[in-house]
Design a protein around this nucleic acid. Structure first.
Lengths: 234, 234
DNA sequence: AAGTGGTCTAGACCACGGT
DNA sequence: CCGTGGTCTAGACCACTTA
């Protein structure tokens, strides 16, 4: 009983196949006619799925040749959803995620408004501190729409951080970032082992899937230990 | 003898109509069936044109109601080079640019390194404070590669801010943004009329043209009066 | 009830590239 | 030559909104 459209189902199948490493950048994807057979749909439907992936730059199509997985474009923290665990490991350091909270809770007004949900509606809430080789670098406060990620609370966040789980398992098609500079609360300063007069870089991210909010996350970073960046060609 | 596709032709027609002011934001566009008649094409062709415009956010479609010109989407300071003057005026406020400095000077080591130029090499330097209806919102410190923008110092920055001049007159093909949270120096706090314990959002931008740095600019914003953001579809 | 957009079908013709 | 993607057609059914 899928309520998603056929073309979306095909898109998801391909995106997931790429994400799972079943197809790597440069690999050839099944042709339209092959997908027509394997999904039992009309060619226009397959065509739309592949065309939209090509428009997004995830697939490169060459008439007369075939469809191929595109090279991922390198992007900074502000242009994608960064995995703090992967970033830390890429720097050769050890990542640790301390889970402070992970349960269902009624949405506070401010978050409900930001997520387009009802005040007091039950949603999933998690709080974590991420450490880089023992030094805290991020305090993460997250709310998750249970309709989009019903299995969220069943995860072990000390093994796979909330953000990594969501990126890997829950689809999204739109991202908003808002960056602020703030001073930490007493609690935050304690968790981040920083002074209360030191500034924090606050990154708030909202993601949507088909116009419904998936997650609202606010990440506080001690500015002395973390920066945000992006680089792109115009 | 049109060499463009039919759906592209319909897209162009609508985009041009919006650009020419024939349809304004919120206005209702012709329905699919009306466009089918006026262009003499199949409904799928019209549908593709409107759907792609909706995907780009230029058109908002409501099933059962119609298609409408979308409100122009604020793209966010982090994904483009924002004109602070235009942003302030778009909010209905008055922009003023106080020029603190504008001359050639030897590059300090830190900036030379960031720009890939020689330490002590002569470059153009400007410092400005931008005010929104009299309230300072940005302190801007800029270095410019004289090879890329030889006429930089001949401009009147109180009329056209340095950034607006460069965007309009000097080409670039790559942008890097780095965001930091810092406390202001005594000088900066004075120029921005803020307390020294209030955090600043620091946006550093570098631009390149054909692998040569065009400009390095650092903009300090009182966090209580300014945020950075971006929103995009993946 | 009538009109809208959302999706899907089963064909079709074309330009292109590799065999 | 044949398979590829790019485009287009002329229908269709559906859910939805508005009158």
């Amino acid at each position: 009983m899928s309520k998603v459209s056929l073309y979306q189902h095909i898109k998801d199948h391909i995106v997931q196949g790429i994400g799972a490493g079943r197809w790597k950048p440069g690999d050839r994807l099944p042709s339209e006619s092959e997908l027509v057979v394997s999904f039992g749909v009309a060619r226009m439907t397959v065509n739309r799925a592949l065309r939209e992936l090509a428009d997004q730059g995830r697939v490169r199509r060459v008439a007369g040749v075939g469809s191929f997985v595109a090279e991922p474009r390198p992007q900074g923290t502000l242009l994608r959803i960064a995995s703090i665990a992967a970033d830390i490991q890429a720097r050769g350091h050890v990542h640790e995620c301390r889970v402070l909270a992970a349960q269902a809770a009624p949405l506070p007004a401010e978050c409900a408004l930001a997520m387009g949900m009802e005040v007091g509606e039950s949603a999933f809430h998690s709080e974590c501190v991420h450490l880089e080789s023992g030094v805290p670098v991020q305090y993460e406060d997250r709310w998750v729409n249970p309709r989009q990620a019903p299995d969220f609370l069943a995860q072990d966040f000390s093994r796979i951080p909330p953000g990594d789980y969501l990126v890997a398992s829950v689809p999204y098609d739109e991202i908003e970032h808002v960056v602020d500079a703030v001073l930490p609360t007493r609690e935050q300063a304690r968790h981040l082992a920083m002074g209360r007069q030191e500034p924090c870089l606050l990154l708030q991210r909202r993601t949507w899937y088909q116009n419904e909010t998936v997650t609202l996350v606010r990440c506080w970073h001690p500015a002395s230990r973390y920066r945000l960046g992006s680089r792109f060609t115009v």
